[in-house]
Measured scan of single mutants.
Amino acid sequence: SEFQINEQVLASWSDSRFYPAKVTAVNKDGTYTVKFYDGVVQTVKHIHVKA
């Protein structure tokens, strides 16, 4: 599913667990740039983002 900029989502971290994050960019290659609550910004594949 498509997510929008500033949408609150759950994004997987390197430990494969999902954490609350905010979408900061929707990228043309189908990835999302997300910002976790601790301030870390990461680009993740769409399969690693869920509502």
Rank of each mutant, 00 (worst) to 15 (best):
T31Q: 02
V40M: 13
E2V: 11
V9G: 02
F18I: 05
S1M: 13
Y37V: 08
Q4W: 09
G39S: 04
K28N: 13
P20M: 05
Y19S: 06
V49H: 04
A11C: 11
I5S: 03
T31H: 04
V23P: 01
A11S: 03
T31S: 10
Q8I: 15
T31W: 08
Q8N: 13
F3S: 03
V9D: 02
A11Y: 01
Q42P: 03
F3G: 04
Y37D: 11
V34D: 02
E7C: 11
S14Q: 13
A21K: 01
V23H: 00
G30S: 01
K22E: 11
P20C: 13
I5G: 03
Q8H: 13
F36H: 00
F36D: 01
S1G: 12
D29C: 02
N27C: 07
G39F: 07
A21Y: 04
K35G: 02
T24Q: 09
K28R: 10
S14C: 12
Y19R: 08
Y19M: 11
Y19Q: 07
G39P: 02
Q8C: 15
K28F: 10
Q42R: 15
V34M: 01
S14E: 13
D29N: 06
G39T: 05
W13S: 12
H48C: 14
T24I: 15
Y32C: 07
V23A: 01
Q8K: 11
Y37G: 08
Y32H: 03
A25Q: 08
Q42C: 14
E2G: 12
K35E: 15
T24F: 02
K50P: 06
Y37W: 13
A11L: 06
Q42S: 11
S14Y: 09
A21G: 08
A25W: 05
G30P: 02
Q4R: 09
H46A: 15
A51I: 09
H46S: 15
N6Q: 05
T33N: 09
Q4T: 10
S14L: 14
A21H: 02
N6T: 01
Y37F: 13
T31R: 02
A25C: 09
V9N: 02
D15E: 09
N6Y: 09
V23K: 01
V40L: 11
K28Y: 09
K35H: 09
S16C: 14
H48A: 11
S12F: 12
F18R: 00
V26Y: 05
F18K: 00
Q42G: 11
T24H: 03
V44Q: 02
D15K: 00
A11W: 00
P20D: 03
V44K: 03
N6C: 12
V34I: 09
K35S: 10
V26L: 07
A21Q: 01
N27L: 06
S16I: 08
S12I: 15
H48N: 14
Q4M: 09
V23I: 15
W13R: 15
Y19N: 03
F36Y: 05
W13E: 06
A25V: 07
L10F: 09
W13N: 10
D38W: 15
F3V: 07
F18P: 01
D29I: 00
G39M: 05
S16R: 09
F3N: 04
E7N: 05
V40H: 14
V9P: 02
A25N: 07
V41T: 10
F36K: 00
A51N: 08
Q8S: 12
S1C: 14
Y32N: 02
F36R: 06
F36T: 02
H46T: 11
F18G: 02
T33R: 04
Q8R: 09
A51R: 13
V41I: 12
V41F: 08
K50Q: 10
K35D: 08
S12H: 11
A21N: 01
Q42M: 14
V41R: 00
I47Q: 13
S16A: 11
A51P: 13
V26N: 06
K50G: 06
I5P: 07
V9F: 04
N6I: 07
Q4P: 06
S1E: 11
W13A: 13
R17H: 14
I5D: 02
H48G: 07
S1T: 12
V9L: 02
V44P: 03
G30T: 00
V26I: 13
E2N: 11
V49I: 14
K22G: 05
N27G: 06
F36M: 05
S16W: 04
T24V: 15
S14V: 12
W13D: 09
Y32F: 08
D38Y: 08
